[in-house]
Amino acid sequence: MQIFLTSPRELIASAWRNRSLIVAMTKREVSGRYRGSTLGMLWSLFNPILMLAIYTFVFSVIFKARWNTSSESKTEFALMLFAGLIVFNLFSECISRSPNLILGNTNYVKKVVFPLEILPWVTLGAALFHFTISLGVWLIAYLILVGSLHITTFLLPLVIVPLLFLTLGLAWFLASLGVFLRDVSQIIGVLISILMFMSPIFYPVTALPEQYRGLIESNPLTPAIEGTRKILFLGDVPDWSQIGSFTFVSLIVCWLGFTWFQKTRKGFADVL
């Protein structure tokens, strides 16, 4: 019987051993999504711009939403909103697809030599591609509409990397759970929609009544979203204690998700 290791060292070692395969499958994942479309890869650029325009119009024009800053311009609102939205989209793209990762690749399950644990890495890689495109759009828009970028922009990985570990851990857990409980994908779709409005994307945490701030601050996406805004738009350093706690929790979730996946993968073939 094959033994699947669950140590933190194996988590990293598996990704390193299969790095070429992960890169190849990520490229195929990204290109395959737009294969056959007239605009091709340009959709990865148009989609975030279109959603930004819609959300900005709805919240800043119809609902008159504003940020607690000196400026009340729609340009500022759009940039603040977009900064939060690209972080959320990175998370939601991976999580929403995770329950069907094994179900959509049943041919790999029968292959004993195929490293199933890399599938969440592939999904994360594709989401990172779209995140990078959206971030590039944001940076160009800021340069055009506001001016030079803040030096704190280089601190962005300190906020995003913990989010990647958190996302990866949840992806492993959901990929496994989706094999045994087919309703997971439907449940996750609903939870992602709820999480969008329970995250400080369209509003700052300070805009909420005091009794509700604890609920939003307990959201695992809040440190990443708020930290990204501070770094990119305000030019401030993130809350180091918050980022430290976020990183610790993310690493624990990542390892637990990997352990769960390795422990349960033996039953995939029987279910499928």
Rank of each mutant, 00 (worst) to 15 (best):
Q242R: 14
L52T: 10
F248A: 15
G40W: 04
L128T: 05
W67V: 07
W255Y: 10
S185H: 02
S148A: 14
H130D: 13
V113S: 11
G136V: 01
C94G: 15
F202I: 15
T56H: 03
K266A: 12
P223F: 12
E10W: 12
Q2M: 10
L256M: 14
V253I: 15
T6C: 11
S44C: 07
G136D: 04
L101K: 03
V58P: 00
L21W: 10
F4V: 11
F4M: 12
P220F: 09
F246N: 09
I231M: 12
I118F: 02
L174G: 04
L45M: 14
P223V: 13
F59S: 07
Q186W: 08
V112I: 15
V113P: 03
G169R: 10
T69W: 11
F165T: 04
L195S: 15
Q262R: 15
V190N: 05
W260I: 07
T75D: 12
F88M: 03
D183T: 10
F131P: 00
T26K: 05
L149M: 06
G267N: 12
L145P: 02
L139G: 05
M51A: 01
G36Q: 02
L177A: 14
R213W: 11
E210I: 11
I102Y: 01
A83K: 06
W138M: 10
V271K: 07
L90K: 05
G227D: 04
V112M: 12
L143W: 08
I231L: 13
W43D: 03
C254Y: 01
R66C: 01
S92Q: 08
S199F: 00
T6P: 06
L79R: 01
A24W: 09
I160G: 01
L21F: 09
L232D: 01
M196T: 08
S44T: 10
L21Y: 07
F268H: 05
T132Q: 02
F63A: 15
T123A: 08
S96P: 00
L42Q: 08
P162H: 05
C254T: 06
P204H: 11
L232A: 03
R9L: 13
T123L: 10
I54F: 05
L195G: 15
F197E: 05
S176N: 02
D270P: 05
S218T: 12
A126K: 03
I54V: 15
I49A: 15
F268L: 05
L256I: 14
M41V: 15
G227F: 01
L5R: 13
G125M: 06
G214P: 00
K111G: 02
A13Q: 13
S134Y: 00
F82L: 05
L128E: 08
A141P: 07
L85T: 00
S241F: 13
G40T: 09
F202D: 07
K64D: 14
K110L: 12
L116Y: 03
L208N: 07
I144C: 06
V61M: 09
S71R: 09
G214R: 07
L177C: 06
I118T: 00
K263S: 07
L119N: 00
S31I: 11
I151Q: 11
G147M: 06
S92V: 03
V161D: 02
S20K: 14
L135S: 07
R19W: 08
V87R: 04
T222I: 10
F82P: 01
L119P: 02
